[in-house]
Design a protein around this nucleic acid. Structure first.
Length: 430
DNA sequence: TCTGGGGTCCTAGGACCC
DNA sequence: TCTGGGGTCCTAGGACCC
């Protein structure tokens, strides 16, 4: 096991043991915070926390903020108690997506076998790249150098025989580090780790395992499989037992397609009236519908999520007779699902809408609707409306077209939102 | 000022079909 | 009279990840 955080930023200089190590896990350091600091260099060296809102949590914290005990997913109020001088910035998803695309482009320049896990991390299988670029350790060093030179962002890289060991390795050399776990070193690396370090073992599973006296990966590897199955379920037990022996046959899968698209929103204040909830459902249906159409998908199942003031959460889904990408159809279904709950005097803090059962729009048989028949073969009215709205928003900005139901609730009349968005939109003449 | 928002996967029960 | 067995689809909830 070799750590080389201060490896020269040049390819080909890694000379440790990386035998049998085709898997890389690349993980950006404090990604959202680092992108913000890159936008505003005067923040460098200061504690920066991304997140917020009235009931927000920390989405990312710079290492300066982490020194005060600020962590991801911590409530913003707690973060500010620990670090009152922190610079708090609202998330800028567009900036993070753009930076992520640049990172992934650098990775895909090394090999097409790149599997993004989220905006800020990815697995690479470099077994086919070694003839071109040298050994895995050298490739990892070169990636780190290119990311920092071209993007001004640091990352950490784990190099190992399997995906999950590579992921554990990158976590243990952060920030701005690199850790290679050669095949012969895997069990020595894994066994002393606490079970909670394993990918897939969270708070609940850790608790269940602790009740059995299992605290380290070594303990896990010596536990009878039937005992494990009773404690955490068959699938998780078999998976964890294999991981504890260092076994993880999962290949890097570069072409994962999304299985669901969802949007949810925690309200600044709890909602009580059905009309208010309906308005949120419309806003969320509109957003989800747009994202489904943007990717040329259609969805078979529509779901809602409702979280009450006491944090109890319910979900309802309905599978439709045919596929849809229509905002109106998503909204109608969502509203029916909400009404089917028959809530009496609810206090609602979160509303969500989800589409699943996604398919390529072209891969699905066209549904003969009354609209279609009556229109003599025309595309149903709602789809044409959605298409027109999508086109207008692409040209004039996302707030250019809005349902009348949603107007005024942020004090923004339609005309002014359109002209404001206009400046950020494409510069085509109307 | 307790507890975001985007996802994936698993389980368990019931309906339904052959 | 004493109730098969396997497979698939659907739904609700929950664990987990970043």
């Amino acid at each position: 096991v070799g750590r080389s955080a201060d490896l020269p930023r040049t390819a080909g200089l890694f000379d440790g043991d990386d035998s049998g190590c085709p898997m890389l896990h690349v993980d950006m350091d404090a990604f959202f915070a680092s992108v913000e600091i890159k936008k505003r260099p005067e923040l460098r060296g200061r504690p920066v926390v991304v997140g917020g809102g009235q009931r927000g949590v920390v989405a990312a914290a710079s290492y300066e903020a982490r020194r005060y005990g600020v962590r991801s997913a911590m409530s913003m109020s707690q973060a500010l108690r620990r670090c009152p001088q922190a610079v708090v910035l609202p998330p800028d998803r567009a900036a993070y997506s753009a930076a992520s695309a640049q990172v992934m482009a650098i990775l895909r320049d090394v090999t097409p076998l790149v599997e993004p896990l989220s905006l800020d991390e990815a697995f690479l299988d470099v077994s086919g790249a070694v003839r071109l670029y040298g050994r895995p350790g050298a490739i990892a060093a070169a990636i780190r150098a290119r990311v920092v030179d071209q993007l001004g962002l640091t990352c950490s890289v784990g190099v190992a025989p399997t995906k999950f060991v590579a992921k554990l390795a990158s976590a243990r050399c952060k920030p701005d580090g690199m850790l290679v776990v050669p095949a012969a070193g895997v069990l020595g690396f894994l066994h002393p780790l606490p079970v909670g370090a394993l990918w897939g073992v969270g708070a609940r599973t850790t608790e269940s395992l602790h009740r059995l006296g299992i605290r380290t990966v070594a303990d896990l590897s010596q536990t009878p499989i039937d005992t494990l199955r009773r404690a955490v379920g068959v699938a998780a037990a078999d998976h964890l037992f294999a991981l504890a022996q260092g076994i993880d046959p999962r290949p890097v899968h570069p072409d994962e397609v999304e299985k669901s698209i969802s949007a949810d929103r925690t309200l600044d204040a709890d909602l009580t009236a059905e009309a208010e909830v309906g308005r949120e459902l419309l806003r969320l249906s509109d957003e989800v519908g747009r994202r489904v159409r943007d990717r040329s998908f259609v969805a078979r199942t529509v779901g809602i999520k409702i979280r009450f003031a006491d944090f109890r959460t319910v979900t309802r889904v309905r599978t439709l007779p045919s596929w849809t990408a229509s905002t109106g159809e998503i909204y109608d279904t969502a509203l029916e699902l909400y009404r089917s709950l028959h809530l009496d005097q609810p206090r609602i803090r979160l509303v969500g809408v989800k589409c699943e059962g996604l398919r390529e729009a072209g891969a699905v048989p066209e549904q003969l609707t009354l609209d279609l028949i009556a229109g003599g073969g025309e595309i149903p009215t709602r789809s044409r409306a959605d298409q027109a709205i999508d086109a207008a928003r692409l040209r004039f900005g996302s707030r250019a077209v809005q349902s009348g139901t949603l107007l005024g609730d942020r004090g923004a009349p339609a005309a002014s939102s359109a002209s404001r968005s206009d400046r950020n939109a494409r510069s085509d003449p109307a």
